[in-house]
């Protein structure tokens, strides 16, 4: 029943699209704005299975692989930064006083506006794309990890201190285990801006990638490529998000004892 209810809006959207598309196509069979599902299916299938004439690549898979690699590297850098700086800021009061205001200010800079600076620093290649994703997602992730550390009940820290734990022991045995699930939540929330920055980076200068393809074929209004690509990106993001949630639930059962997870 829940599955059926959940499907209704999707079906409604598809139905309205199909109606609008066939109306335009009956007026002009070569219309590019709202291609039929069949056209989109054919194009998508071709991009997934037929090597491109000029490069010999299977366009869809090359684009997907390159984009996911950039996304993974960018988010990986963000996770490392979030762990090191987040725990330092959350756990060490002096670090917090020194860095928290700076971080709060930095996280408010829209990364797209400092693109020329990123270009000069990281060049125009892969590094710049990974850097844009990291710059766009790391500050918020650092802040949520720091908050997760601050949320740990003070009593726990006091207790292990009385038991004679060193700072390193407190971090690895008390703080880290409780931060993991919160880190994954931050990662899931960071996925959306990460995709946005990935696609912006690929639109600016690139030779492959999901965002590159969309902006390239926009030059001749090839909606039969763009719409399936958008659906594909949505699906990828959804799958990654679900996979992270499942992973987190499986590994950190204790973090999901109360309430429902979305």
């Amino acid at each position: 029943m829940a599955l059926f209810l959940g499907a209704i809006p999707f079906l409604g959207l598809a139905g309205v699209y199909a109606a609008a598309s066939s109306a335009r196509l009956s007026a002009n069979p070569a219309d590019k704005l709202l291609p039929s599902f069949e056209q989109m299916g054919t194009t998508f299938w071709r991009m997934a299975t037929v090597p491109e004439v000029r490069t010999g690549d299977l366009t869809l898979w090359v684009d997907t692989f390159d984009s996911l690699q950039r996304l993974g590297l960018g988010l990986g850098v963000s996770v490392l930064l979030a762990l090191t700086f987040g725990i330092a800021i959350g756990f060490v009061p002096h670090v917090r006083s020194a860095l928290a205001p700076f971080l709060a200010a930095i996280s408010l800079i829209p990364p797209i506006t400092v693109l020329p600076i990123l270009f000069i620093t990281f060049g125009l290649g892969e590094t710049a794309k990974v850097a844009l994703i990291a710059v766009g997602t790391a500050p918020v992730m650092i802040r949520s990890v720091a908050q997760a550390v601050l949320d740990i009940p003070r009593e726990q820290i006091v207790k292990v201190q009385t038991l004679g734990a060193s700072v390193w022991q407190m971090v690895t045995r008390v703080v880290l285990p409780q931060v993991w699930p919160r880190l994954i939540t931050a990662l899931r929330l960071g996925l959306i801006p990460a995709f946005i920055f990935l696609i912006s980076a690929e639109a600016i200068a690139s030779t492959t990638g999901l965002g590159y393809r969309i902006f390239l074929v926009r030059r001749y209004l090839a909606m039969d490529v763009i719409l399936p690509y958008v659906a594909w990106i949505t699906l990828l993001a959804f799958l990654i998000d679900r996979a992270l949630l499942l992973f987190s639930r499986r590994i950190f059962r204790w973090a999901f004892l109360e309430g429902e997870a979305l």
Binding site: R54, L115, P116, F119, I120, G123, L124, G125, A203, I204, A205, S206, T207, Y212, F215, L216
Partner: peptide, 23 residues
């Protein structure tokens, strides 16, 4: 064209891109 690599670059960022050593 196969003798070189075309890098698609947005015209809005062309001047900034030209200023980098990569280009």
């Amino acid at each position: 064209e196969p003798d070189l690599t075309v890098v698609s670059t947005s015209d809005a960022d062309m001047v900034a891109a030209a200023a980098t050593d990569d280009v």
